[in-house]
Each structure stands twice: as C-alpha cells, then as structure tokens.
C-alpha cells in the first residue's frame, strides 16, 4: 500500500489523541458560542445552583447514603456524619420531637409548622422538614429527567434516522406511531398505565423516555435527517462503498446529534413536569419528590381554596422548584438552539 519499502513510520500523533484534542476544541468553541446567549447562561446558572444544592449541600447536611447492613465497616450507618440533626433534617424520617416544659417530655410539635429557625421552610403535615424534602427532591428530578431524556434521545435519533433513510413502510410505520402517541394525552396515558402496573421511579423514567422517543422528537429528527439524507456527501459515501449502517451511523446520526441534544433539554423539562403531575395524583411509588410534596399537602386538605395561602410553605417551595428547574432546562435548550441553528446565530 505505501510506496515506502520500510515499515510505515508514524508522522503524526496517535489518532485518538488528535481526536481528543479536536473534541476539546469543539467543546470550547461551542461553549464560547453558548456563553453569548444570556438566556442559556441564566438557565445553566439555575441548573448549577440546583445541582450543587441537591448533590453537594444536601448530602453534607443529611449525611451521605446509608451503607448496607452487611458492609464490614460502619454497616447500616451513614457514610459520614450529617451536619444537621438527622432527627430534624430528614426528608422522610425527620421526626421533630421538641422538649415540652409542660409535659416534661419530648412531644411532636404542631404541624404543619410554619418556617422557624429550626425548620427554615417549616414542616409538612406529618411534621417533616420541608427544606430537606426540597433538597432531596432535586436528586429525584435530575436523575429522572436526565435518564428519561437520554432514553428519548437515543430512541428518537435512531428511529428518526432510520425512518428518514429507508423511507417507505418503515417511515410510515414510525410516523403513524408518532401520530398515535401525540394524539394520546401523556398524562391520561400515564394515569391509565399506572392503573395497569405499579410504577416506581425507574419504570416511570423508562416509560417517559419511550413515550417521548417515539413521539414528537422522532418527527423533528426525521425531518432533519431527511435534509441530511439528500446531501451529496451521502452519495459520496455510497460511491465509496459504504453500506446502509455506515451511512446511518457515520453520516446521518452525527449530523442530527446536535439537534437531538437540543431536544434532550426540552425532554428533561417535560419529564420533570410529568413526574410532578403523576406524583401529585399519587400514582407513583416514590419516596420523595416535589410532586409528592404537593400531593401530601392536598391529601391532608391544605390545598383547599380557603387556607391555601395560609399554609403557603407546604406547596409553594415545591411548586417554584418545579417551575424553575423546568424553565432552566428549557432556557438551556434555547441557548443551544443558537448554536445548533446557524440561522439564529448572531454574526
């Protein structure tokens, strides 16, 4: 192959290193562009705040995860000592016993208790600390949203590319499927589904992911893939001898991936929101989440028209968190839009 008689000498850095460098450069360039989008940055900042609160502050205050019983060292104990009194600051078990002078013993306080120095955001109708619940809910929201979005994007990208590439029956089938899914209101569908099977955290994430993946995102990504499919470089790849798989995975998918990534942000928003709604109806088997907090408030009768504002700390923090985190992912999506769509890109 090479004309040289000696064994080929490497003239360049190893390919993987060059690729790593290119990847880094691409990421830096994208970041430079993203940085110019005010809304995108705002969204990212909000997400960062939530992330730090949920994944750093909360574990520090509450203690890390509880180690399993069989663990040789410190089995059954928290990974580190909580900073806050675990009896107070625990989203589920926090039992706020206070010393009563009158009874000369520990008693439960009145709950729901309004914000106080002890409970910064008050307690829920069972007397548990709202702040700890909010912070704990962040983890649930992130993991669920991102996991569902990854599934959605994986399915949507693959199906979109395949439907666009093969066209014909494959295309018709997936597009009709998408139509049916879009016709079905998500929430109603989830309610029916939760009647049929017990939904826990992970199964909800998977259902949301699949639902999103076969739904609207397929249509959007398919139309993008169709635009890619007719590019001359696809024909060039065929002339080089590339098969269907090669063209789909090396040419079409890499070119729709930025758009997929953009839609991933929007999917996170909808997954978080859907979980909140389902939890609100009490249909998910989940320990603690923002939706569940509002559900508890309603079940205990504090969400009625008359006393709603009086017990604001029961539902407002959770409601605001849902709104802010959903909005933040949406804003990041909008910021990414400016990178992905050169039309919107400022010169």
């Amino acid at each position: 192959m090479a004309t040289a008689t000696t064994a080929p000498q490497r003239q360049f850095d190893p390919i993987w290193r060059v690729r790593a460098r290119l990847l880094r450069r691409g990421a830096l360039e994208s970041w430079a562009m993203f940085r110019e989008s005010k809304i995108g940055l705002t969204g990212l900042a909000v997400i960062a705040i939530f992330f730090v609160a949920g994944f750093v502050i909360h574990p520090v205050l509450w203690g890390g995860p509880t180690l399993p019983e069989w663990f040789p060292i410190a089995g059954g104990q928290k990974l580190w000592a909580p900073l806050w009194d675990g009896k107070i600051y625990d989203p589920i078990l926090g039992r706020p016993l206070v010393w009563s002078e009158e009874h000369e013993t520990y008693i439960f306080t009145d709950f729901p208790a309004p914000p106080s120095l002890r409970h910064w955001l008050g307690t829920d109708p069972y007397g548990r600390d709202i702040l700890s619940q909010i912070l704990h809910g962040i983890q649930a929201a992130f993991v669920l949203g991102i996991f569902a979005a990854l599934i959605t994007v994986f399915i949507g990208t693959t199906i979109g590319a395949i439907a666009a590439y093969y066209g014909g029956f494959v295309d018709t089938f997936f597009m009709r499927l998408a139509d049916i899914i879009l016709l079905f209101p998500l929430i109603a569908f989830l309610i029916v589904l939760s009647g049929l099977m017990q939904m826990d955290f992970w199964s909800l994430a998977i259902v949301l992911g699949i639902y999103g993946g076969f739904g609207s995102i397929t249509i959007v990504l398919k139309s993008q893939a169709l635009a890619i499919k007719v590019k001359p470089y696809i024909e060039a790849a065929r002339v080089a001898g590339g098969g269907h798989g090669h063209i789909i995975f090396r040419h079409i998918i890499p070119n729709i991936l930025p758009l997929s990534f953009l839609y991933m942000m929007f999917t996170v928003t909808s997954a978080i929101f859907s979980e909140a709604v389902l939890s609100f109806f009490g249909l998910v088997d989940i320990k603690m989440s923002w939706g569940l907090m509002i559900n508890i408030t309603r079940d205990a009768g504090y969400l009625g028209a008359t006393n709603m504002m009086q017990f604001w700390w029961l539902w407002m923090p959770a409601g605001l968190c849902i709104t802010f985190l959903c909005a933040a992912f949406y804003l990041v999506g909008r910021g990414l839009d400016e990178i992905v769509n050169p039309r919107l890109r400022a010169r």
């Binding site: 080929p8 390919i15 790849a237 001898g241």
Partner: peptide
Amino acid sequence: EPLAVQGIGSLLEREERVA
C-alpha cells in the same frame, strides 16, 4: 472513508496513504 469502508490496510497504513 473509502479505505475504511473497503477494509484496506491497518490504521497506520491508511494514515500513510491519506497523507
């Protein structure tokens, strides 16, 4: 791409050839 699709040569040889 044509070399890779046709399965010609090792990565090193292909680098040579492309250059």
